[in-house]
Design a protein around this nucleic acid. Structure first.
Length: 265
DNA sequence: ACCCAGGGTAACT
DNA sequence: AGTTACCATGGG
């Protein structure tokens, strides 16, 4: 198989996209990142001017990786319109973050696991979930689909050491598999529908729902409020969010999250 | 030993 | 309607 190369977009950084807390399954190996999404393993590397998709044919690039890295969206235009002081700092310092289009089920499941948890341990639990219940592919494991997990019990998930979240994962798997939570409708409808639909799952509240809508359904107006964003709002925007993020709140959120989280390091 | 982590639930006022 | 203890686990 050949490699697929494209000119690097104006706003693109692999470490920022893949290690900013929106995806938990990419691993840095030397200058490249390796991971599995949509059932396919990818090794990807960036140079100053190019993106190199190793072992990738045009078909998989068009079908999987182009949408995954959101390459049809003009981020330069979007973040260029942010005219508020703190946002300008965030998008200048961390220029390169993009919102990945992840699989909806993986996003839902991952952010259920994320609750009251830290990123290294989230990654560990998800990794064990895939190793134990996903399918082996060349280079790693797929993310187990909802149908695969729907018949399990929380005890079956003991090897994950997910704690109290195990029962939430099972409930989500069951409701997604039987379409009590209907992904197709969430995809087709405005964000408000998805908000109501997703919180039917036990263990899914407003924040996990927003993350799922943003990273799994690419609803760019989703605005997840976690402990860091709470701090941002309290410290920077006590009187409301700036108007310039209207319609792309989720992109602004990701820049602000990363900006604020790195202040304390 | 104590605190916190990309929260949510249930049981309280 | 708005607080608060509790939830499993692991790292600092």
């Amino acid at each position: 198989m050949g490699d697929y190369r494209i000119k690097k977009p104006d706003v693109f950084s692999l470490p920022l996209c893949l290690d900013c807390g929106q995806a938990f399954r990419w691993e840095k190996r030397e200058n490249a990142f390796c991971g599995v999404a949509f059932g396919k393993f990818l090794k990807i590397e960036e140079t100053d001017s190019e993106l190199i998709f190793y072992g990738t044919e045009k078909e998989d690039f068009d079908k999987i990786w182009k949408p995954y890295f959101d390459l049809d969206v003009n981020y330069s235009e979007i973040i260029g319109a942010y005219d508020e002081e703190n946002l300008v700092k965030a998008v200048t310092e961390y220029r390169g973050i993009r919102i990945l289009r992840q699989e909806p089920w993986e996003a839902l499941c991952s952010f259920i696991i994320s609750q009251n948890n830290n990123i290294p341990r989230i990654k560990g639990i998800i990794s064990r979930l895939c190793e134990n219940f996903g399918d082996a592919v060349d280079g790693g494991f797929t993310f187990p689909d909802a149908e695969r997990l729907a018949d399990l019990t929380p005890d079956d998930l003991a090897p994950l050491r997910a704690g109290f979240r195990a029962k939430y994962i099972i409930d989500a798997a069951q409701k997604v598999a039987e379409q009590t939570v209907n992904f197709k409708k969430i995809d087709e409808n405005p964000i408000e529908f998805g908000r109501e639909e997703l919180i039917k799952v036990k263990g899914v509240g407003a924040k996990v729902a927003e993350c799922t809508l943003l990273y799994g359904f690419h609803k760019l107006s989703a605005f997840p409020i976690d402990v860091w964003v709470k701090r941002i709002i309290a410290e920077m925007y006590p009187n409301g969010l700036p108007a310039c993020i209207k319609g792309t709140e989720g992109i602004a959120q990701q820049y602000l999250f990363h900006y604020r989280r790195n202040l304390d390091k």
